[in-house]
Design a protein around this nucleic acid. Structure first.
Length: 474
DNA sequence: ATGTTC
């Protein structure tokens, strides 16, 4: 087991190691450290610290758990000219992320309709594996989605200008989408507007407490307001892009091998493979932005039918739609020098504060949306100035698993989890029994404790807390 | 996460 050095109440440093080019820092406290049953995630932080061109530190957020190569909850930035890009540092679900939709409805107005709404959402939005979209896309439309992102949704009536402004990167990352394989395209063409499975979900929530009144007001949010949260990504298309490039890099001889972990494969950003991966990753990210937008469109339709009012009069604006599995080209100040970096956030959220965030969020900072588990709570936060220096303006992305899916399935029964949710007044519609046990609240770390570390380590400040009323799982 | 083992 690693002998971690406590550097503050909310941060630990890995012991020095000859392989490490930079320090390894984990933002965590004693309580959350007790969740570790093995040191694999910590080894992954160490392995990332050995990669060429890494800048400042290999960082992990309090929701850290084991991933492919890089830990989930990991942040690592590489010099754009001399550093690497790693598909495992982005994750298989490229631009997996969260959209939070506001309403002007209060809890009292929806409480008797919750079950109907979820059942109608379940009919309207395909969920789980092998549930195909009702949208019929042709190849040209799919190509446009990959290169134009939300602009395609805007042109086709699925998005408004406002939706675009409320989406990270305005829902479009510049890229040459022609490198995306036919196989990835074939998997994606029937999956637009589908939720997927596993930890992906759709939730109806209410604002249960406000920690930052001023920012909440600026976000247009108040106590007992009803919100809808969507967590999904780029589906089979992004998964195939990741698979394609991991396979190609491993077979190419260009991959930078890591003696500690064969899975931790990467290539230089400047290499041809690296450039093709970055373009393909960005295309998959655009697909994911559109996927969440189409789901938003379908949610609005269901609410319009339920309340017999149009979605604008229901106040159904997107607060924000963000990515938490991406590598992004960004400029950061490192030792008084502005440097061009590729910031890998794998299960980590961009958290630029006021003054660094752009557009309509320049005076608040971008909303940082952190879902907990399906039985507990989620949070909206904003980043801090101090954290721009510490972790490239990044926050954690969720509670983080504490039990593996396998362990969860062995430990819980669907009936016990359903009873628990029912006792808490949470209505659930799940595609399979297995996902109910896999995603049991006890499979995740305590979100309140994770937020305590995020706040204590000055990563981000809590703005408001959301409590689930009903959940749909794929 | 994932046409849940090309």
């Amino acid at each position: 087991m690693f002998n971690l050095k406590k550097i503050s109440e909310f941060a630990y440093e890995l012991p020095e190691d000859q392989s490490m080019k930079v320090p390894g820092i984990i933002y965590i406290n004693d309580t959350l450290l007790k969740n570790f049953t093995n040191d694999e995630p910590i080894k992954q932080v160490r392995n990332v610290a050995s990669l060429p061109g890494i800048v400042k530190a290999s960082i992990a957020m309090p929701d850290i758990h084991m991933g492919y190569g890089f830990p989930i909850g990991g942040v690592a930035a590489f010099d754009y000219d001399n550093g690497i890009v790693s598909p495992g540092g982005v994750g298989y679900d490229i631009n997996c992320g969260v959209t939070l939709i506001k309403t002007n409805l209060k809890y009292q107005e929806v409480r008797n309709k919750i079950a109907d709404i979820i059942e109608n959402l379940y009919k309207s939005i395909p969920a789980g594996i092998d549930h195909k979209s009702s949208l019929r896309l042709n190849q040209q439309s799919l190509s446009n989605i990959l290169s134009e992102g939300i602009y395609w949704a805007l042109e086709n009536g699925y998005a408004t200008e406002n939706d675009m402004l409320n989406t990270e990167e305005s829902g479009k990352i510049e890229c040459d989408a022609s490198y995306v394989s036919e196989k990835a395209m074939a998997r994606g063409i029937n999956e637009l507007g589908t939720l997927g499975g596993g930890n992906h979900f759709l939730e109806i929530q209410r604002v249960s407490s406000i920690m930052d009144d001023k920012t909440s007001k600026m976000f247009g949010m108040e106590p007992d307001q009803v919100t809808i949260m969507v967590h999904t990504g780029s589906r089979g298309l992004g998964h195939q892009v990741a698979t394609d490039f991991i396979t190609e890099i491993l077979n190419s001889g260009e991959g930078i091998k890591n003696e500690n972990d064969k899975q931790l494969t990467s290539v230089y950003i400047s290499s041809k493979i690296g450039q093709r991966y970055i373009n393909s990753m960005n295309a998959a990210a655009n697909f994911s932005f559109v996927n969440r937008q189409i789901i938003t469109y379908k949610i609005r339709k269901v609410f319009e039918e339920t309340f017999k009012r149009d979605y604008e009069s229901l106040g159904m604006d997107i607060l924000y739609s963000l990515a938490h599995n991406m590598a992004k080209q960004e400029y950061h100040i490192i030792e008084n020098t502005k440097r061009k970096l590729l910031v890998h956030r794998k299960g980590a959220t961009r958290a630029f504060p006021a003054g660094v965030a752009e557009g309509k969020f320049s005076s608040t900072g971008y909303p940082v949306i952190i879902p907990g588990d399906m039985g507990t709570a989620s949070y909206v936060l904003v980043g801090t100035q101090e954290n721009m220096k510490n972790s490239f303006g990044s926050s954690c992305h969720g509670a983080g698993r504490v039990l593996s899916r396998k362990a969860s399935n062995e430990k819980f029964t669907p009936e016990s989890v359903l009873r628990e949710l029912n006792d808490r007044g949470i209505y659930i519609r799940a595609a399979t029994k297995k996902v109910i046990t896999e995603e049991s609240p006890e499979s995740y770390k305590d979100i309140d404790e994770v937020i305590k570390v995020v706040n204590g380590a000055n990563i981000a400040r809590p703005v408001l807390k959301l409590t689930p009323l009903a959940v749909m799982k794929g």
